[in-house]
Design a protein around this nucleic acid. Structure first.
Lengths: 218, 218
DNA sequence: TTTGCCACGTCAGTTTGCTGTCAGCTTGAT
DNA sequence: ATCAAGCTGACAGCAAACTGACGTGGCAAA
């Protein structure tokens, strides 16, 4: 399951991201509403965790506009405002649920599980990636009948590339999806993982765009 | 097949009764535990559907007493309490299966069909798990002729893994199936249960995917 | 009540294999 | 031809996972 986290607080954001990731879901973390809009336009998310107190705008307005555009992605509002009026307004604006800070992370994973249950009812989307077929949800990859084993980091890189399938993904972007914010990458780790993925999935699946990044053909 | 339905909610009770009847089974519907006791003393039922939240007593206690009297009629618990602790307790008390409200009626008929198969003398769907054969419905496992005894929590872990057979199941997901939300797991309990299952079922049945979780090969 | 038994959760010491790093090589642009 | 960018085999370190052992508590039999 792929989750978009919209949260400007670094401490809380990290905690939420780690918790969600530990449950095996992919997490994209943005800190502003305009970034959120961009991500939502390009990626099909299964759930949005939306903080209402963001520096660059009003979350509720954003949520209303999102619904106005016809999106029905489940949205859980996360906020410090526990006033009942805001809560009502949030649900009126199209939120599916409401979490008031500070909240227990278990509280969050419980809601997450509820959404995941709904999501699990859908057939698993298997993607063709070169010779291989991959299932990002179940973390299963195979070429023909042969099962391919990918490690955690390899899945992370592949997922990032596939999420922007057809587009060029820069190395720093991949690093950001691999490590926490501010992590020092003093090496060519991304190149190494691309190399490992190619060895497992076939040399042609990941294309190098010299000076810009990598791309998986759509 | 003759089914005893113990359910005080009229709406839900009617829905269940109609659904079961539509599948060609006979249904007796009682709304209190004392009635249920009476019916069980006089009629040989093939299956009991037991709501735990009844006005006149505790379903679990009733179930334990029933088992204490030597009855081995299959019992499926139907309840709104979706806390895992209750679920474990229910299975410990001698229930054969567990349905959490609100549930799909298809869900019910599927379990019903499993019981019906057993009733008809046909082999229950036994799963091959490595060297072992397990029957999740009857909670029976064996290797060759040798019966394997699994504890309640071992069954819970194995069931979770088999429900997602072929997919990688994260440790937090397994924990969620083991404990209620909010339960602090300050240890490596999941690892320990995996270890115990491997010792009983064979080392190769549960595969470790480092950093992601566990998997039972499809 | 006492006794014994067993499932459960915890811990510590050990094992495992992923991960990040580097060095030397290849490739592509100019 | 030259240089920068990218590729990949190898390897040590370390965090994740394994497992034997133990204390506790609940349940049942005596």
């Amino acid at each position: 399951m792929r989750v978009l986290l919209v949260e400007d607080d670094v401490i809380l954001g990290e905690a939420i991201r780690d918790s969600v990731a530990a449950h095996g879901h992919g997490v994209d973390w943005v800190k502003r509403l305009d970034e959120a809009g961009l991500s939502l336009d390009t990626v099909a998310y299964d759930l949005v965790l939306l903080d209402l107190n963001l520096p660059d705008g009003f979350g509720l307005k954003f949520l209303k506009e999102l619904r106005g555009k016809g999106s029905d992605v489940p949205v859980i509002i996360v906020t410090a405002q526990d006033q009942i009026g805001v809560r009502i307004e949030g649900l009126d604006s199209g939120a599916d649920d409401y979490l008031v800070k500070p909240f227990d992370l278990d509280e969050l994973t419980a809601r997450l599980a509820a959404v995941a249950r709904r999501y699990a009812g859908q057939p698993n989307p298997e993607l063709d990636v070169g010779e291989a077929r991959v299932d990002l949800t179940r973390k299963v990859a195979r070429i023909g009948d042969k099962q391919i084993e990918l490690t955690a980091r390899e899945w992370a890189v592949l997922e990032t590339l596939l999420r922007h399938r057809g587009a060029i993904v820069s190395k720093p972007d991949i690093e950001d999806s691999l490590y926490e914010f501010g992590a020092e990458v003093e090496s060519n780790a991304v190149e190494v993982y691309v190399s490992r993925l190619r060895k497992k999935l076939g040399a042609k699946v990941i294309e190098t765009v010299r000076g810009l990044g990598y791309r998986v053909a759509a």
